[in-house]
Write a protein that binds this DNA or RNA. Structure first.
Lengths: 178, 178
DNA sequence: TGGGGCATGTAAGTAGTTACATGATTGT
DNA sequence: ACAATCATGTAACTACTTACATGCCCCA
């Protein structure tokens, strides 16, 4: 089943001006990794595949005397990107160890369950900090305002949810103890 | 790099009373798939691995005359589950095509960008409905209240966020048109 | 003169999905 | 008698990560 995972990341990144595999990887690590990761092992082979398909073209360039391949979108590539952007999305996959633990948290005692939520909050707070740091150093790195805003506000919501639940569980625990 | 993905799902599921691979897969499809998926191709081999490791034991059982293997946790298995639940989590991975599109949405015109957000909202609403359906038919299926509550409230937040952004983009569009 | 960044790549491995095969059982 | 569900599994494949190899460039 062809899923086209990296394809769209690369098309989008090249559109944004990332001309080398290295530059694409940087954009991924700085930004898209929060909702779509990619490694060199995917990027370089996929760049060649996309060139074969005629969606991008590479030309020889250089930084000083150091060689690099400079990719740009072809008309077909731009059309493909546009088409993909306008069609409804299907892929939404989450792998969240914190939630998985919350799901199984009835296997530990009440006070310990609070710890599960607290740990979950701590993770979210770490991610939130990283997102805010990106925000602080500006949109310079190519992180569009909307996607970043979404990330920050969602993590704020998550932290808040955890806090509320912690309070509820603590109240319940006291009730039991009393 | 050993990551132990399925291990914890299985340990938790068996603790919850899922005794067969089939029952585990049902719990996964009904519930954990929203934050941690698993397929038969992982579950059955992993069950044998966990038995070898002494974390679960299987015995021959039957439903009528139909054979099945009934797994239960060993003390070591219970200890491992507990240990995992109490330690801080690391894994948080998201693959969200909607957000990826939002990130690259400046490649299309303003009104079209609203469509990107609208599509994103539609997906969230679909998921939200499925979560609410689980809620309606009760916690019977083994979905603990907290994890389900989290899923529902988070998706409500997401839908709301999309709505707010749609309004903002629409206002901006009008401003440009005027 | 050496460390960090730029730049391109691949081999080996892990993780995970899909699609199929098999067959009994239960309820209608 | 038929469909749906229970139940167990695997082969082939796709996707993805990690770790490594290579070497130049720039700046302090």
């Amino acid at each position: 089943m062809r899923f086209g995972g990296v394809e769209n990341v690369i098309l989008g990144a090249v559109h944004k001006g990332c001309s080398s595999g290295y530059a694409i990887k940087q954009l991924v690590d700085d930004a898209t990794r929060f909702f779509w990761a990619a490694s060199y092992g995917q990027i370089y082979p996929e760049l060649r595949r996309l060139e074969e398909e005629g969606l991008i073209v590479g030309s020889f360039g250089h930084t000083g005397a150091r060689e690099r391949t400079e990719y740009t979108l072809t008309d077909a590539g731009r059309a493909r990107l546009r088409e993909w952007l306008l069609e409804p999305s299907a892929a939404y996959e989450l792998r969240d160890e914190g939630l998985l633990k919350l799901f199984f948290a009835d296997a530990v005692r009440g006070e310990e369950a609070i710890g599960v939520v607290r740990n979950m909050r701590a993770e979210r707070e770490r991610i939130l900090e990283r997102l805010r740091a990106i925000d602080a150093r500006g949109v310079a790195k190519g992180f569009p305002a909307l996607a970043l805003e979404y990330g920050i506000e969602q993590h704020e919501w998550m932290v808040d949810w955890c806090r509320r639940v912690e309070a509820r569980l603590a109240a319940k625990d006291e009730g039991v103890a009393a």
